[in-house]
Amino acid sequence: MTTTIADEFEAHRPRLFGLAYRMLGSAADAEDAVQDVYLRFSGTDRTVIEQHAAWLAKAVTNLCLTRLTSARARRERYTGTWLPEPVLTSDGTLGPLESAEQRDAVSLALLVLLERLTPTERAVYVLREAFAYSYREISGVLDLAEANCRQLHRRAVARLEVPEARFEPTPERRSGLVESFLAAAQEGDMAGLEKILAEDVVWWSDGGGKVSAALRPVEGREKVLRLLVKGWEKWAVGLDFSLAEVNGSPALLARSGDALAFTVSFTFRGGVVTDVRAVLNPDKLEFAGRQLGGT
């Protein structure tokens, strides 16, 4: 049986989407980038391409580099806090997430940190850390000297200042903390919430100017508790809540019928929650909504 261009490309699509998403922090933009690469691939004589996987990875990376410049300008004009688009990951959409390092590499927390990097630093970091590319392979993707790629990687690691993953709760413990958070929030249990939240917890909300949301981070346990006690009843009216794996970690999904209303993701440290990221912007929920089979 002859393999068609479409068949061959589909075999590469998941990896290309995972790469583009990590580069852009947007599932919608990642889908567009991958589709653009497909159009280029289908219009190219495949006999002159020595390694299709390498060609495709280079094409999508360089397309993302171009898009990051305009995306950064848009984010500077963004209303309120900008957060990446949430992606459900239990179905392997972003590739295997079998280790703590693999899960952390797609977390909303890390994707936010990646915004600190220049587009080229981000490409080097993603290719090296998420896809285990050698510096020689990265050099071929970016058309840079290996020594330059090494330097860019060192600079990216230093700028990210990613905290060590010591004392991280197990996946089961993370799920338990999220379940306890939901139960305490629904019951207005201040004491229960206080046990779950770190003293320096920060709550981030992304409404994008489309829905009501805090425009600035809410910092500190007392302020977050007040936010939850005053706001939860209003937010939760008519919504069904469930747990799901979002960006490699247990999270809450809030649905109104079949429609996804918002997601709440958590960062954990030493058995407590240190950061909460709520994505309410409906534009950013379209991809996850489709994953759930909603409209």
Rank of each mutant, 00 (worst) to 15 (best):
V276Q: 11
D200G: 09
G207K: 03
A28N: 10
R150E: 14
E8K: 08
L292I: 01
R77T: 10
G18C: 01
A183F: 04
K210P: 05
L243S: 02
G293C: 01
R150D: 12
T61K: 02
P171W: 08
G248A: 00
A214R: 07
S175Q: 13
R13F: 04
A244M: 08
N281V: 07
K223Y: 15
H12R: 07
C64H: 06
G92K: 03
L117R: 02
A156Y: 00
W204P: 06
G209H: 02
F17H: 01
E115H: 03
G220M: 01
R46S: 13
A53V: 07
P14Y: 05
K234T: 14
S205D: 15
W82Y: 08
R103L: 02
V246T: 03
P163M: 04
L253F: 00
L228F: 11
V37I: 12
S134G: 12
A33Q: 06
K234W: 15
D91G: 05
R40V: 13
R255V: 01
V246A: 03
V229W: 14
T81A: 02
S175M: 10
Q51W: 14
E129C: 15
A59E: 07
A191S: 12
R72G: 08
Q35E: 14
V48M: 13
N148G: 09
W232M: 08
P86A: 02
P169Y: 00
F17P: 00
L108W: 12
D104H: 13
K58H: 12
S134A: 08
R74F: 09
T295N: 15
F167G: 07
R77Y: 08
E146L: 11
Y125L: 01
P96W: 07
K195F: 11
D45L: 05
L63H: 08
V60Y: 01
G188M: 05
E219M: 14
L215F: 08
W235S: 13
L113Q: 09
T89P: 00
G271Y: 05
M190E: 15
E121Q: 11
T81V: 09
E121T: 03
A147T: 11
E10H: 00
W204M: 15
F131Y: 08
T4A: 00
R77G: 12
L24E: 01
E164Y: 13
S265A: 11
A236C: 09
F287E: 03
L65H: 03
R159G: 02
R216H: 14
T79W: 15
Q186W: 07
L117D: 01
V218Q: 03
R269M: 10
E233L: 14
W203C: 07
